[in-house]
Simulated scan of single mutants.
Amino acid sequence: MDAPAKSAVRLMDTSRFWRSPAEARLLTADGVTLHAEYLPPARGASSDAASEVAVVLAHGFTGAVERPAVRRAARVFARYGGVVTFSFRGHGRSGGLSTVGDREVLDLDAAVAWARSLGFARVVTVGFSMGGAVVVRHAALCGGVAAAAAVSAPARWYYQGTVPMRRLHWVVMRPLGRVVGRVGLKTRIDPNEWTEIPLPPVAAAAQITVPLLVVHGDADPYFPLDHPRSLAEAAAAASPRPELWIEPGFGHAENAATESLLERVATWVTAPVSAR
């Protein structure tokens, strides 16, 4: 799925929830129902700008709205604005089957549309691992966001240069692996391989026209540092202000992200346009 057609996403009327937590079922453009939650800006949020920006968080592969690391990240980002979390297709209480970064762009687009329906002037996206790849691809293919941040994201598909990634490929590509994914990891994976190779994150980065932050740890066990460096280098061709942070000792994605790192990402991604 390279260039999804923009089509209306059916949403419940959520405008009344702007100042209180809410839960919703979102319908993607291709008919998948997603579980999503909204967390309003925390009391004493960092500035008045918090009432103007919504952060949409995209979890990593095998994550979900209810996972502790996702809820922790949501609470941190709520200090800077409203927060929408959602479970990708095939994850948690969402329907459908995971396509591991392809049609998940439509899931993120539905969550962005919900955030916008709540009345926020600006919507930004932050993704972790697979969610980071989706954030990059969504910004390039769909647009409509003010800034994006990709944390621990891969730059290209089919990478198997590390032991964790070889294990992940076994889970995704093998029938027994998909059983393990469904039973052990609570992730339902589409057994059909991609018929067309989706636009790789590194190619999508070259098409992003909004500020992009790439964050990666030098202790990431999944993707080595050539992944974030190639994303940032590609983004420099179009993004007005790409930044690359290589974090000492940081492992992988939302499970390893410290509160201080999440705070720094939140500060960057929610900064007003005039401050960039």
Rank of each mutant, 00 (worst) to 15 (best):
G144H: 09
A133V: 11
E254N: 04
D109C: 02
V126M: 10
R276T: 08
E254F: 03
L108G: 14
F17R: 07
Y158R: 15
A257G: 05
R229M: 04
A234Y: 00
S260Y: 08
W268A: 12
S230E: 02
Y222C: 08
A235Q: 04
S117L: 01
F77I: 04
D30V: 10
R93T: 03
D30E: 13
L244T: 00
D48A: 15
L27N: 12
V273S: 13
S152T: 08
A232P: 04
S46H: 14
A64T: 11
M1W: 12
L185G: 04
L213M: 07
Y80M: 05
R25M: 05
A64M: 09
G82V: 03
A50E: 00
F86Q: 02
E66T: 08
G95E: 08
A50N: 01
F17W: 12
D13K: 05
S239T: 00
L118Y: 11
R137E: 03
R276H: 14
S98W: 09
T62K: 09
A29V: 15
G144K: 12
Q160N: 11
V9I: 11
P68K: 06
T14V: 12
V179W: 12
A146R: 15
H59R: 11
A266S: 15
H216N: 07
Y159H: 14
I208V: 15
H91L: 05
R67D: 04
H216R: 05
V100K: 08
L199E: 06
P224E: 10
A149L: 05
V215A: 00
T28D: 07
A64G: 13
A73N: 06
S260H: 14
A275I: 07
W157F: 15
N255K: 12
V145H: 13
W157R: 13
A8I: 07
R174G: 03
G63Q: 09
R122W: 06
L213P: 02
G127R: 06
V76Y: 06
Y159D: 13
A147R: 15
G249A: 05
R79Y: 01
V214A: 08
P201L: 04
T209G: 09
V214H: 06
R174C: 10
P40M: 00
G184W: 01
R122Q: 09
A238T: 01
V124L: 11
G161A: 07
G95M: 07
D220E: 03
G44M: 03
G63A: 07
L106F: 09
G251M: 02
A204R: 06
V215W: 00
A8W: 06
A140V: 08
E104F: 15
A203F: 03
A275G: 08
A139S: 12
V215N: 00
R182D: 09
G96N: 11
A238W: 00
F88C: 07
T62L: 07
V84F: 15
V100N: 14
G184D: 01
A58P: 10
F120D: 01
T195W: 15
W18I: 14
Q160W: 03
R10W: 04
S7N: 11
P211A: 10
R188V: 10
L262M: 13
G60H: 12
E37Y: 03
A49N: 12
G95C: 08
A64F: 09
R79V: 01
L57K: 11
F120E: 02
L212R: 10
S152C: 11
L27C: 13
P154T: 05
A139D: 01
R89M: 13
G184T: 02
G217Q: 03
R178I: 05
V202W: 05
